[in-house]
Design a protein around this nucleic acid. Structure first.
Lengths: 224, 224
DNA sequence: GTACATTTCAAACACCTGTTTAAATTTGGG
DNA sequence: CCCAAATTTAAACAGGTGTTTGAAATGTAC
């Protein structure tokens, strides 16, 4: 009973890092069990299959993240009056950063896993999250709708997925981007800094004026 | 000489579709040669390796796209005066849509391939494009800088990569998004429609007001 | 301390991967 | 027509994949 917990934990810890760095399909069970210093068969014994291991790795973060998000969303919804879009988006920050209590560098690892999950095993993760946490995310959509009442639902749908793409891609290629940024602008970038940079970008994109034929070239200028 | 061209073409045509749908790593040479109705060894005979086949598939589009983009960028740069950001971004539309002359559904296939390339074999494609077409892309960065002069270079770097992520992810999961959009809003979506929806989102995100401590919550509202 | 259940381990399983080989076939020029 | 070069073909290669097996080791309770 003691060694079991230990082995499962060792596998999860090794798997999450390798998955985040190399992707799910390109990480073999032999790599994982080698890093975890555990027998190859341990994965199938404790988790059943590689697929279930992937889900277990994600669940460790999704469970605590979604619970926290649900709190925040409900709280914001209870305030009745529509909230500023930036405020709504900023609600993600604290719950995400609290993932560092699940595991060292938990926030970065989880966001990278999310990126991997959406591009590697296409559709699987999307279905998994929607099935288990769809009601939480619905609250978020409602909040965005309240803060952008004049935005058509279909337009909002696309822009939220654009935003998901921005986040997911940024996190999947986080290491590479951070390296370039450090080399070219000699600025060190942690995950918190990236999130802080993402929010204004996402908020402006979601709330952008909608394209119409009568007004094809909106005037867009960057502020300070 | 006749059969050779034919075989190479058949391989390229089969490969691009499978790569776009399933990704590079998850598409085997046996699947490709099976669809192309060609012997398994033909890929290695005509292209050398799977890696070189991937590059050949991408090159077919990159060559014509980058040449066209270079024209447009140079033309816009020659006009001296800074251009509207939306105009700069809109410059991508025509060259991208002209990829349909390279192959049926060429635009969609190429953009999906681009998405796959950036997430599957991370870094490879980025290096490849930068090495071969870096000077073209530099012109684009210059144009954006001219239209957003008050945006710090490091901020612009991040936002351009955010935008790349938006495009790349949207195209990689294009089929799924289109299905959902059709089911939920009963609106048919072609690649042109997606591009048209992307532009205002990207333009607003890139030109968004920068986050400052003295002004942490920018007022952002969606217009009409 | 013996009996039972849990966990670990090395080995093998069947299958898939990209690549290579050498013989068979097709092709185009003299 | 004939020969040499280009192309196609079937077969095998070496290596990697996730999963299963049955015996060994470990832990737990009586």
């Amino acid at each position: 009973m003691v060694a079991k917990q230990n082995t499962q934990q060792k596998i999860l810890d090794a798997a999450q890092s390798l998955f985040a760095e190399t992707g799910f399909n390109d990480t073999s069970l032999r790599q994982i069990t080698s890093v975890a210093e555990v027998n190859l068969a341990a994965v199938n014994y404790h988790f059943g299959s590689k697929k279930e291991l992937i889900q277990a790795v994600l669940q460790r973060y999704l469970r605590v993240l979604m619970a926290r998000l649900d709190q925040e969303f409900s709280q914001l919804l209870a305030s009745q009056q529509p909230n500023n879009l930036t405020q709504v988006l900023a609600v993600f920050v604290k719950p995400l950063l609290e993932l560092n209590s699940v595991h060292h560098n938990g926030t970065r690892i989880f966001l990278q896993l999310l990126g991997r999950g959406y591009t590697d095993v296409q559709g699987h993760l999307r279905w998994f999250i929607n099935h288990h946490y769809g009601r939480v995310l619905d609250k978020f959509v409602l909040l965005v709708q309240q803060s952008c009442p004049q935005l058509p639902a279909s337009e909002l749908f696309w822009r939220l997925h654009f935003s998901l793409g921005t986040v997911v891609f940024t996190m999947a290629s986080n290491e590479a981007l951070a390296e370039i940024a450090e080399a070219d602008f000699s600025e060190e970038v942690d995950i918190e800094g990236v999130i802080q940079r993402l929010l204004p970008y996402l908020a402006a994109g979601i709330a952008a004026p909608v394209y119409t034929r009568s007004n094809p070239q909106q005037q867009l200028r960057s502020g300070t």
